[in-house]
């Protein structure tokens, strides 16, 4: 991994740098699996190695592929900053509990309740989902607002041209027969998989975010193969925007519903007659909101990049 990272730092070919970053991202996803963070690994693979790379390549396609070499002065400045920060951090780690130590405070405080009580309080086995959607559901709401903001931002900055003048030629790769057929075969599978991930998140790794990303990548694949024009026919940009906004609203309004039913904001327990049922319902709705916003935001990001045409 270190080698990959250093290679990114040294290389002037931006395209290669981006690709190397993709590898770096995949490697870290693997590392996450090793460290028991399957949900995170899933996400990192989909985002770091997937979406981020697509975005970067898109940006490269719209700009330039070569980087000017780093001037010497800057190099030293950067090195100084890095050495100072890094040695500070190393100094900080000296008193940290060692890796994997079960006696570390992080394993003793707060966490036990999640591990021991969540089954009774929320009723789903995937603790990550419990914490994500319920105990710290508010952070997750914040998170989809962030991605929504970014989508709004990219739309606002790049804009989605009314008549799509695509960089990806409107014909796409239609003439690649094999690609088309594979894609046609793959797409339904990916979509089904996405749905599975969406609703299986309670039990295994997965959830709205991962599902959203997978769904979006299926769509992006479609766009790449069949051309942007077809893609926008399937999902007109305005509709996508509406879905993105609706996802955020759904999540936020589930919280408001809690308010009206006499609970605190985002208290799902009051949504049904039994707290765990309420939690279930709440988490499902909220995850749906997450999935909608993420998928729609990613798709609109793709549209924005793909259809961007410099002004005048």
């Amino acid at each position: 991994m270190t080698a990959t990272a250093i290679a990114v730092a040294r290389i002037d070919q931006l395209f290669a740098a981006v690709m190397l970053f993709g590898i770096y991202s995949l490697l870290s996803a693997a590392l996450f699996v090793v460290m028991d963070a399957v949900d995170v690994a899933f996400t990192e693979a989909a985002v770091g190695a997937g979406i981020a790379i697509i975005l970067m390549l898109g940006a490269l396609a719209l700009t330039t592929r070569e980087q000017r070499p780093v001037p010497r002065r800057r190099h030293w400045v950067a090195l100084a900053v890095v050495v100072a920060t890094g040695s500070g951090l190393i100094y900080g780690t000296l008193d940290m509990p060692s890796y994997g130590d079960p006696g570390a405070p992080a394993h003793l405080h707060v966490i036990p309740r999640y591990l021991n009580q969540s089954m009774a309080e929320i009723g789903i086995p995937n603790v990550v989902t419990s914490v994500l959607a319920s105990y710290r559901g508010y952070d997750t709401l914040g998170e989809i607002v962030v991605i929504f903001t970014a989508a709004v931002g990219v739309i606002g900055r790049l804009g989605v041209a009314p008549e799509i003048t695509a960089l990806v030629k409107s014909g796409g790769m239609q003439h690649h027969l094999i690609l088309r057929i594979t894609a046609k075969l793959m797409l339904p599978l990916i979509m089904v998989f996405a749905l599975y991930v969406q609703f299986h998140g309670d039990f295994g790794p997965g959830g709205g975010f991962q599902a959203g990303v997978i769904f979006a990548s299926a769509f992006i694949l479609y766009g790449l193969v069949f051309g942007l024009e077809d893609a926008t026919k399937v999902a007109p940009p305005p509709v996508v925007h509406v879905i993105a906004a609706a996802g955020v609203l759904l999540f936020a309004l589930v919280g408001v519903a809690g308010l009206f039913l006499g609970g605190n904001y985002l208290d799902y327990g009051v949504l049904a007659d039994e707290p765990t049922k309420g939690q279930h319902l709440g988490i499902m709705l909220v995850e749906l909101g997450v999935g909608m916003t993420v998928a729609a935001s990613m798709i609109s990001l793709f549209f924005a990049y793909a259809s961007y045409k410099p002004e005048e």
Binding site: F148, H241, G255, Y265
Partner: peptide
């Protein structure tokens, strides 16, 4: 009841307004 929920509303109202502004 409302007065007890003010802290949440303080943040959630603008949060809801954001997407709605886009939709409008």
């Amino acid at each position: 009841m409302i007065s007890a929920q003010l802290p949440a509303l303080q943040v959630v109202l603008p949060l809801l307004a954001g997407p709605v502004c886009l939709l409008l």
